[in-house]
Amino acid sequence: MRAAVLHTHGQPPSHADHPDPVSSDGYSVVRVTAAPVVPLDLLCASGTSYFGQPAVPYVPGVQGVGVVEQSEVVPPGTRVFFATSAGMAAGDGSFAERCAVPDVDLVVLDTPVPDTEVAALGLSGVAAWMALTWRAQFKPGEQVLVLGGGGAVGQVAIGAARLLGADGVVAVCRSDAARDRALAAGADEVVASGPDVDALTARLRDATDGAVDVVIDPVFGLPATAASRVLAPYGRLVNLGGSSGDEAVFSSSVLRSRTASILGYTNNAITPEQRRDALTAVLQHAANGAVAVTHETVSLADIATAWHRQSTGSTDGRLVVTI
């Protein structure tokens, strides 16, 4: 079969022939139709992640959409979303014509949302939904601040907050294009990020009237530091990424005086059932046009270029590989 095969850590995968997956007990074989290129793919392939260095060669791709070809639990022809542990454990991922998937990681799709849009939402949608509803324990009437509002997680978090009854949603973005995506997702106001933490804090105070109940943070670093300063009493900051840096600075007096919480989130800590239920909820709203992620499609043959674009931020939304 044709696949994107990684031979060297830190380098893009190449479009090449690769052995077909072999069906085995507890696994289904899926014919892949669409798979997004996400930061986790690049992190795992770099060989520098906390999962350790994956054995090479392997096929990256931690999620995808497709049609079941062989399975003992799902009828062949069933349309599914699936997650993989490619780059985090032994085995190949979704950037291939076929993928062997643990049966527990299949989510049967019953939605009119196209495969490419399902792939664009995917685990980013799951993370945004779960960070807001499960980790932050969001309540209707609260005000939400979304860092990285133009990214995939940010766009879903903005839409979800609106759907769940947020009193207001403010986003932080780095570029005009990201600002446009955040506004299209439903943000009431977008604050420009920047290198001065005090200036960003001041802008956030103005935009949020000085206090915000929930922060959804896929970026960390300086924006998280600024956001922590405007947490309301009992406010919660949920971190689920570090694209702006692996460290942020928090004030003990601010956290203690407001009984505020700094919380971590990862999709790896939820159950397959939670993943299924969260994705199903997101797709229900996507079918109604209430949640979306800006994306573009690229062919499997162009995987190296897509990989480079993702690594340099040269994209206007999520890149989805069609196969």
Rank of each mutant, 00 (worst) to 15 (best):
A4R: 01
H7I: 03
S14I: 15
D17V: 06
H18T: 02
P19F: 01
V22D: 06
V22N: 04
R31W: 07
A34G: 14
V38N: 15
V38A: 11
T48F: 04
Y50N: 12
Q53F: 04
Q53S: 11
P54A: 04
P60N: 05
G61Y: 07
E72S: 13
P75K: 13
V80M: 10
F82G: 09
S85Q: 14
A89T: 10
A89W: 09
G93C: 07
S94K: 11
A96S: 11
C99F: 08
V101L: 12
V104L: 12
D110I: 05
D110T: 11
V126Y: 00
W129C: 05
A131F: 00
Q137C: 04
F138S: 04
F138K: 05
G141F: 08
E142N: 01
E142D: 02
Q143S: 13
V153G: 07
V153F: 05
G154S: 01
G159M: 03
A160I: 06
A161F: 07
D167I: 02
V169W: 10
A178C: 13
A185Q: 07
V190G: 05
V190I: 09
S193L: 10
D198S: 09
A199F: 11
L200F: 05
T201L: 00
T201I: 02
A202M: 08
T208Q: 02
A211V: 02
V212G: 06
D213I: 06
D213W: 03
V215G: 06
D217A: 01
V219W: 04
L222V: 06
P223V: 06
A226I: 03
V230R: 10
R236T: 11
V238C: 00
D246Q: 04
E247N: 05
S251M: 10
S257T: 13
A260K: 06
G264Q: 04
T266C: 00
A269K: 03
T271P: 02
Q274H: 04
A281T: 13
A281D: 09
V282M: 09
T294Y: 07
Q310F: 05
D316A: 14
L319N: 09
T322M: 15
